[in-house]
Computed example of a mutant assay.
Amino acid sequence: MTEQIRENYFLAVKMLLMLVSEIYLLVIQFGQAGASGEMLLLLALFLGFFVGEELLKNRLRLLFLVLLAAELFFLMNLYGESFLLLGILLAYEFVSYMKFRFRQAGSVIWYFFPILIAWIPTQNDMFAQVAVALLAGIIYIQHDFIVTSYRKEIKENSLSEQHLKRNMNRQEHELREELNRGLLVAENQMLEEKTRLSQTLHDKLGHNINGSIYQLEAVKVLLEKDPETSKKMVQAVIDQLRTGMDEIRSILRRERPEKYKLAILQLQRLCEECENIGIHAELVTKGDLAEVPEKYLEIVLDNACEAISNALKYAHCTKIEITIVVMNKILRCTISDNGVGCSEVVDGMGIAGMRRRMRSVNGILDFNTEAGFSINMLLPMKE
């Protein structure tokens, strides 16, 4: 059933009911005497007004209802009270219109008024007249109180779902913005570390290297005149440069930026962002993270961001846990939530990206959907 049919089914049912009633009047009541062209024209006009008022809104619809009542009065004056059958259907239209306009007048008891009209004696078969009134009443009550209420509920649910999706998208955007800001802070920290390292190397080694250059210049002058002295000076320069190399190694070991600390800092900030929106998030680490290659830390961080983003969008969870365990030959990372889980894992862009990053280091990625949703990563501890 198409959307257009679903929207206009009630109009089609009313048209069919009106058309059957008119055919009944023409065939049963006026079949022997014959229906005049004027009667057929008036009935066609009545059907047209009946259909047209459904397509209109507010006061224009009320105007059509008044025109229908006037035409019905005219038909009954010309051809008798048999056309009261059409009046029963018109009465339901008035009650339905009043229900949507005036809530106080919208009680279901008003829908019994046209049934009372059906008991008025006419030339029609009383059983057929009452049966049409009951059938029409069931149709109108079902539409006005059940179908309309159901449509309203669906619309409200749809609006609520759209609002929820907007909030989730906004939260995801804010989370990614915060993550980007955190990455920018980390990059700035790395730049500061590099600047400090450069300054340290300049301060510690600048004088040493300059002194070595001056001595080599002197050696070049004395090389032919005093070879023995030149030899001693060259050895002194060699010793001085060797000392400088030792100092460089010492400085690099002492001043080397610790990437794993920056990665842990990003994960902690990610957990803090979850806490800010009412989701408890916890980071658990075991083992020496300093032994983890930088590339692995980047993969864990990127996959964690994707996993938490998906959890916020789809899981409806209240708790997220990130566990990183460093073992002798394997790095294991698990990101789990207590949400609704899923029956099947669909590889969208996010999951596909996680798989691609894991394949680049011969890692293993799997999922557990039995209780909430868990992402498990195993990375071999080698470059």
Rank of each mutant, 00 (worst) to 15 (best):
H173Q: 10
L75P: 00
G87M: 13
V130I: 10
M126W: 14
T229R: 09
R249N: 15
R359A: 15
E344V: 06
F74V: 09
Y296I: 02
L241Y: 05
E344R: 04
L134T: 10
L135P: 01
F83N: 02
Y214N: 12
K319G: 04
R176I: 09
I146S: 08
I213H: 09
M381R: 15
H202P: 06
I138K: 08
T2R: 10
N328P: 02
I139V: 05
D347E: 11
V237F: 01
K319C: 04
A136I: 00
L25R: 00
M327S: 14
Y140W: 05
I209P: 12
E321W: 05
G348V: 08
L60V: 10
F145Q: 00
L45S: 13
L191F: 10
I299L: 13
L89I: 03
F83V: 03
S158Q: 11
F367Y: 14
V361N: 04
A236T: 12
F30G: 01
F100L: 04
Q32P: 08
I28D: 02
K204D: 10
G48W: 00
I88V: 09
K204F: 11
S96Q: 07
I109L: 14
V325Q: 13
E383W: 10
N167T: 10
Y24N: 08
E193H: 15
F145P: 07
L270H: 01
Q104A: 15
H173K: 14
I5E: 13
M190K: 14
V219G: 05
W119I: 05
I264K: 06
F50Q: 00
C271L: 00
R356N: 12
W110R: 06
E38M: 03
E275A: 11
F64N: 00
T122G: 12
N77R: 14
L17F: 03
T285D: 00
T323Q: 05
A105Q: 15
A131E: 04
I139C: 00
S309W: 05
R166F: 08
A236Q: 11
P257T: 02
V95W: 11
L63K: 07
N368S: 12
A44M: 11
K99R: 14
L197A: 14
Y111W: 03
L90M: 06
M168T: 02
E247G: 00
I320A: 01
I146L: 09
Q129N: 05
M327I: 11
L45K: 00
Q199V: 01
E177D: 14
Y111H: 08
S158E: 12
F74I: 09
K204Y: 09
L84K: 01
K152H: 13
P121T: 06
R332F: 02
I88K: 01
N77E: 13
L67M: 11
T2G: 15
M1V: 01
G31Q: 05
V221L: 12
L78C: 07
S336K: 14
T318C: 02
L297Q: 07
F100R: 01
P257K: 08
L40W: 07
L78Y: 03
L41C: 06
K329H: 11
F112E: 06
G182Y: 10
H173P: 06
L241C: 03
Q171C: 08
V219P: 04
H202M: 14
I324W: 05
Y24C: 11
I251K: 09
V300L: 12
F64V: 07
G34F: 02
A131L: 14
I299K: 14
L331M: 13
I117K: 02
L68Q: 10
Y150M: 07
